[in-house]
């Protein structure tokens, strides 16, 4: 029973973090007007969060559907894809998730992970300086979930909100031709290992 709850705790913590990260990426990449963002403090770090209800609801609905996959360790990667006017990917922020076997985990240590997120976010923010050349072309975004094999027959797991259906992503959104790979941060804790890197479209 404790292991079951543990999966939920991991998913809650990760989704809370992913929500902050998505807001920050959208702000840094100027996908939306800066006026809809407000400065907040998360994980002891100043971040920018949208205060637009429609956008916030979309992000929350997306992560609400991702959560069961993380809970069951069925999500291998969560990817925030930034796209240009033609809906071609400009950048892919890849959050690669792996969890240790549940039985080896000390439940009480799960909360210590939060203190590490701040560093992760700062590094995330530094992506601006690394890949700022792409900024002007960012027009929209989508969130992709790469499932593990075990989840391939469980599309219904992700369709937990009635009016928020999921589909298999187009090939052009999933792969970029000869991307420049920028590793940003790797973080390991007792409960989860997360690696963040950016795939950037080659400059023409």
């Amino acid at each position: 029973r404790q292991d079951l709850n543990f999966g939920q705790v991991v998913a809650d913590i990760l989704c809370e973090f992913l929500e902050v990260a998505i807001h920050l990426i959208l702000y840094v990449r100027e996908v939306y007007p800066s006026g809809i963002f407000q400065k907040r403090k998360k994980y002891n770090v100043p971040v920018q969060m949208s205060c637009h209800p429609e956008l916030n609801q979309y992000i929350q609905d997306t992560l609400h559907c991702v959560k069961p996959l993380i809970e069951k360790n069925d999500a291998e990667k969560v990817v925030v894809v930034i796209m240009d006017k033609e809906h071609h990917p400009v950048e892919r922020f890849v959050f690669e998730i792996s969890q240790p076997p549940l039985l080896s985990i000390r439940f009480a240590s799960s909360f210590s992970v939060k203190s590490n997120w701040g560093v992760f976010l700062i590094t995330n923010r530094s992506a601006e300086t690394l890949t700022g050349g792409q900024k002007k072309r960012c027009c929209s975004f989508t969130v992709l979930v790469h499932t593990r094999d075990a989840a391939t027959r469980n599309m219904e797991k992700v369709q937990v909100i009635k009016d928020f259906p999921w589909i298999v992503a187009d090939e052009q959104e999933v792969h970029m031709k000869e991307p420049r790979l920028i590793p940003l941060k790797s973080m390991t804790s007792d409960i989860v290992k997360m690696q963040l890197y950016v795939e950037e479209r080659a400059q023409k």
């Binding site: 979309y58 929209s140 790469h146």
Partner: peptide, 27 residues
């Protein structure tokens, strides 16, 4: 997709920059 796994995405797109701008003007 590689390894027999799926890559999934929401069917609905997020609000566009233009939609967000128009709602800001309404306020």
């Amino acid at each position: 997709a590689a390894g027999g796994a799926y890559v999934l995405k929401p069917l609905m797109s997020p609000p566009s920059r233009e939609e967000i701008l128009s709602t800001l003007m309404d306020l």
